[in-house]
Design a protein around this nucleic acid. Sequence first.
DNA 1: TTGAAAGCGCTACCAG
DNA 2: CTGGTAGCGCTTTCAA
Lengths: 348, 348
Amino acid sequence: MKASVRAQDVASLAGVSQSAVSRTFTPGASVSEDTRRKVLAAAQQLGYRPNALARSLITRRSRIVALVMSYLENQFYPLVIERLSQQLQREGYHVLMFIADMDEAADGVLAEILEYQVDGIIMASTMLSPTLASSCAAVGVPVVQFNRISSLEGSPRHTVSAVTSDNHRGGELAAMLLLERGYRHIAFLAGLEASSTSIARERGFAETLAAHGLGLTARETGHYDFAEAQAATRRLFRQPQQPDALFAANDHMAIAALDVIRGELQLRVPGDVAVIGFDDVPQSSWGAYDLTSVRQDLESMVTATVSLMCEQMQGAFAPRNIVIPCELVERSTVRPRIDHLPLTGASF
Amino acid sequence: MKASVRAQDVASLAGVSQSAVSRTFTPGASVSEDTRRKVLAAAQQLGYRPNALARSLITRRSRIVALVMSYLENQFYPLVIERLSQQLQREGYHVLMFIADMDEAADGVLAEILEYQVDGIIMASTMLSPTLASSCAAVGVPVVQFNRISSLEGSPRHTVSAVTSDNHRGGELAAMLLLERGYRHIAFLAGLEASSTSIARERGFAETLAAHGLGLTARETGHYDFAEAQAATRRLFRQPQQPDALFAANDHMAIAALDVIRGELQLRVPGDVAVIGFDDVPQSSWGAYDLTSVRQDLESMVTATVSLMCEQMQGAFAPRNIVIPCELVERSTVRPRIDHLPLTGASF
DNA sequence: TTGAAAGCGCTACCAG
DNA sequence: CTGGTAGCGCTTTCAA
């Protein structure tokens, strides 16, 4: 059934040595135009394709990058997969995909990945345990975290590279917008307590409020999950002091909140309540939501991740963090500025 | 930097032969409990992990399955990735991910995949050209198509296995619901003209209408794209005879249509217009849409795909098509039955 | 049950 | 530029 054409077969047919065949398929090797033609013809005739596994065994480079991910329900991540694999493909790498649970460290999974001699590992929306990080370092496999940074508690040796948005700044932008538009009872809907992104966004947000003499009216955790975010929203609005604005750690939860606020609580957005999300996923621009959001620059993040990865795969570099600016995208879930209205409280 | 522990190193430390190490890591090989213990201890100490590439070279099974996909914008497919890789992982396989363009055959990409000696290829939302299909067959790599079947024009030799929903039946269900609820000016929003799913859904839909003496009031193509589906919807409603119901080839386009119908055209749903989608993606149950849809049984489809794939990887089987039933999920974009209203036209 | 030896298909290093 | 030769790390005979 399976023919399995080897380089030797091609060599025999072409009347050259097996080495010549190898060279023909190695970019930048020295082969005469004549041999090259003969080899290519023979290869074509036999349907020969070099065996990447055998090649990797000797070159010690598999040209495979592992992508560990969870939480595909959030549309942001599918887009990451798409752009990341396209860009990696362009660099000659292939993506070995792994799905991990969102909240647990991906150790079990990664041990297995290592057997495939991957040239690098990209971790998105997943935590890398310090143990695993060091074992990757020991084997010399570069790791880049996407949209999450290592907790600061670990020793420096265990720190790994990361690409993130400027989440802190994003939180600031959200807070400034709400303050400017006159909202004063402001709530935050967190993602996962341990998530570095959620923490940074909240910090930037709360610090900016505090700088203007405001605290968080309420705060709940939605675990980045739609149903849980809905439940959290209900709790938020069950307080005696109802919020007049809500900042969610991502769009996915902001949309869940919008459904509760408009559908169940019968409140108007942005009249009664303002809502801001984070990510700017495609769904946020859908007509029925039209969500104001802090956009993550997916394209730049992916580009940075790929170049950081390539850089680390070239040689051993010190871990590096790349921070991508993010920007506010105004839609209709925060009321527009009304210039003739005097602002109460702090000035801007 | 890179230690690269080999079986030989473990053998030396454990004081056994390298073969013994190999056997220890080969399930079902005959090793004494004593040697096994010594090997495991040494392996642990050195941090040894078998090299899967070297293993594959000799066993001729890489335990890698290629997943070729496009069109991740439609939330259905990220979920497919998630479930598929989880189930494949459970069977001991790993997923090599490829993103292909939606409308072009995935030939370039697949030629590359073949070099990695994948044990099988799963194609989702992508077409496999007959040329490529036969070249896979020649190499003996099983191919399973997910949610798409080969065009019937190809010679039987080039037919490959496929898993689909019962799309024809799904179209029937949609038509029956609209007829029953008294809609009579019914339009269809197609996906891609060449897409087997879109074709089957339309056929089941149109045939059922025809059986009740009705034709399609209008028909446009949205190319499975949000913006294009919106444009197509505008064209649909620009006709002299405005539709009072719309069936879209998938939810993604149905949602795009809903935005246009409600937001731009200021029509009420389901009062003025009914909308039905296909897939039942999570977004369809979001409060702002609450879309009536034909549900594809993702879980069953994935399970069928995995078992079909495994079956083919065991030995050469004849190509097989598995069809999974689908079911109607009623939400609020089609008006409820009103029993006391006499139905006009055909009876049910 | 064990160890020695023969490759899997390829690249890389030699002389020529 | 070319062909021989020596492995990459592993599994799998084959004798012991």
